[in-house]
Design a protein around this nucleic acid. Structure first.
Lengths: 260, 260
DNA sequence: CCCTATATGATTGAAGTCAATCATTTGCTG
DNA sequence: CAGCAAATGATTGACTTCAATCATATAGGG
């Protein structure tokens, strides 16, 4: 029997809520919970899936919860092998007892995963990248500090004045930072707030490492982050000659080449 | 053919990693990814499931990622109807343009879900409860601020000096707080760090609402949070006479009764 | 070096899932 | 109020998943 449109919509949003809360539900439980037949539950699922509000699986469905986090993982997965190499080179710099800052971005995610594999003792990790917390929260023996800030819509980063202020109060041995582009005039990033935070971190960090793979070469972004003179270390899959060809000449010892 | 124990273990931990990264994977992809037959993949899955390192589903498996968050959801689900009533009463106090603080705990989670349903305009939400961010991050038109702090192992809360300092710099119209127990001598909570943060928040909040359901009545906890004189509003499913019977006498207007 | 316990892949039957189809009921529009 | 469009539940057959069983190969202990 036909039922008011509004009832259908209500049921479907209840379904998304349920999945959001529970993460995963098999069809059978969905039917019971919603009080509808299997056929209707399936119809709801395929409707919601085409709106990309949920993800169907064989036998049930997943909530599109932490859409930001999962898209993060997606991006990382499509990220080149280069990123994994950079992460390895970066993680190798981390020694026991250090206080390490990890930036926003997927490179930091890769570094965190690498650190999970080979975890130095008494590590303190400082970050504003919420996507890392699932990875870092369960590390035994490591301390994780989150700088505060405003949650960026559709992203999993905290930014703003709170973040800058909190960064200025930290002691950082080693900061891993990333950027969206590099040219002969320096590094570029998309948002002013990100740059402000990065600059605050660099001021407090004994050593600042920028991690950029070759896809960033020659690209710019709306905001200028800083000149090459401010870069302590560059970790990249690019070689010295390749960089010079693009007009970038680094002081010796600045470039750290990652293995592929 | 039999294979070294170490190989099996390596494959299984790779499997957990994969699920951790991708959230969900169907059996077929697992076989391909691990290079084993379906039978072996299933055996791995049931082994890991019995160790509670993953969750099996019909047709695949879920990573036990953000175990903290999911256990959060579990707890919330088992939470009584009372909690939902309290959340409704709490959310009704929130008016457009307010800056609202949400505490750690599942009650705050329930309030956040309620706010998502009926979202006042220009809302600012301040919290240290990371479990809320999935819910609050996608709210259009609302601003979410996270106080910094140290990530508590096996929980999704940020605490410590950073948190207290950040709280002291906030302007809060309405704070929703919870506690683990209430007796005639006041409110109780488990950890000193939580209490320090709550006290800092109360100092900055125009109005502080404590949300406690009847299961908390008569219970204590290791640390004393404060006397009843410091409670601005109590939202509960308990009635005035019930409280008085337990030796708790509130000033008129302090108790806000939630509908069941 | 031998023996056994263990890991693996293939097979199989039972059980579960899915999309399509159809009849029925009922909201909504003209 | 009449007719159409939409929503629902039941049914069906194709397909998938699952656990159990079995044969085989080999790691690891004595």
């Amino acid at each position: 029997m036909r039922v008011p449109r509004q009832v259908v919509e209500a049921r479907r949003s209840r379904l998304t809520e349920l999945l959001l809360e529970r993460g995963y539900l098999p069809i059978s439980e969905l039917c019971e919970e919603l009080g509808v037949s299997e056929a209707t539950a399936r119809r709801d699922l395929s409707a919601l899936e085409s709106e990309e509000r949920i993800t169907r699986t064989y036998g049930g469905a997943l909530g599109e919860f932490n859409a930001t986090f999962t898209s993060f993982r997606e991006r990382l997965r499509h990220g080149t092998e280069a990123k994994a190499g950079i992460a390895r080179a970066a993680a190798a710099l981390v020694k026991p007892g250090m206080q390490v800052y990890l930036d926003a971005g997927t490179t930091a995610f890769a570094i965190a995963q690498e650190l999970r594999r080979h975890l130095p003792e008494r590590l303190t990790i400082i970050t504003n990248n919420l996507a890392l917390l699932e990875t870092l929260g369960s590390l035994p023996g490591a301390k994780t500090i989150v700088l505060g800030g405003q949650l960026l819509e559709r992203q999993s980063v905290l930014l703003g004045n709170e973040a800058v202020k909190a960064a200025a109060a930290q002691e950082i041995d080693l900061a891993f930072l990333s950027a969206q582009g590099m040219t002969d005039t320096g590094l570029w990033n998309s948002q002013r707030d990100i740059i402000r935070l990065q600059q605050a971190v660099m001021k407090r960090a004994t050593r600042s490492c920028f991690c950029l793979d070759r896809s960033k070469l020659g690209r710019t972004a709306p905001e200028h982050l800083g000149a090459w003179t401010r870069v302590g270390t560059l970790i990249s899959d690019l070689s010295f000659p390749e960089l010079r060809q693009a007009g970038i000449t680094l002081k010796p010892g600045t470039l750290l080449n990652s293995q592929p």
